[in-house]
Simulated assay, not measured.
Amino acid sequence: MTNLVLDLFRLNNRMLTSGDRLVAGLGLTSARWQVLGTVGASERPQPVAWIARDMGANRQNVQRIVNDLEKEGLVAFAANPHHRRAQLVVLTEKGRETFAAAMRLQAPWASGLANGLEMREIETAHRVMKALLHKLEGSEEAGEQA
Rank of each mutant, 00 (worst) to 15 (best):
L117G: 07
E93N: 11
K135D: 15
N61S: 12
K130Y: 09
T38E: 14
W50V: 12
G56E: 00
A100C: 05
L132Y: 02
E43P: 01
L74E: 00
R53D: 09
K135Y: 09
V66H: 05
A86F: 13
A114H: 12
R84N: 15
P81T: 11
R53Y: 12
V90L: 07
R59D: 14
A114C: 13
A125Y: 11
E43V: 12
K130I: 13
G56I: 08
P45D: 03
E123A: 05
A101D: 02
Q63A: 15
R104E: 14
K71P: 03
L74Y: 06
P81K: 11
A41M: 06
R53L: 08
Q60K: 14
N58K: 11
A100M: 02
N115Q: 13
A79T: 09
N61W: 04
A57R: 14
N80E: 05
A41Q: 11
R127V: 09
A102Q: 05
V35H: 01
I51H: 01
N67G: 15
E137C: 10
R85P: 02
V66C: 12
G138F: 07
L91G: 02
N58Y: 10
V75H: 08
E93R: 09
D68E: 02
P108S: 02
L91W: 05
W33A: 01
A57D: 11
P81Q: 05
R96L: 10
G37E: 03
G112N: 14
P81S: 10
R85M: 10
V62D: 02
E121N: 04
I51R: 00
R104K: 15
R64E: 05
F77E: 14
A49F: 03
R44A: 13
H126C: 01
L136N: 05
E72I: 09
A114N: 08
G56A: 00
I65A: 04
W33Q: 07
V35P: 01
R120K: 15
P108Q: 10
R127K: 14
P45W: 11
L105K: 08
R59E: 09
A131D: 07
L136W: 03
V128L: 14
R120L: 06
E121G: 05
R120A: 09
A86N: 11
R44Y: 11
H83W: 13
K130S: 12
P81A: 13
L74V: 08
L132D: 02
R59I: 13
L88A: 00
K135F: 10
V66A: 09
L117M: 15
M103P: 04
N58I: 10
A107K: 08
L113G: 14
V75K: 00
I122Y: 00
N61Y: 05
W33K: 01
P81D: 08
R64W: 03
R59A: 09
L113M: 14
L105A: 03
G95D: 06
H82F: 08
Q34K: 07
E118Y: 04
L133D: 11
P45G: 03
Q46I: 03
K135S: 14
N80H: 03
Q106E: 03
K71V: 12
D54H: 13
V89D: 02
L91N: 06
L133K: 01
P47K: 04
F77H: 15
R44V: 14
W50I: 15
N115R: 12
I122M: 03
A49K: 08
A110N: 05
R127F: 15
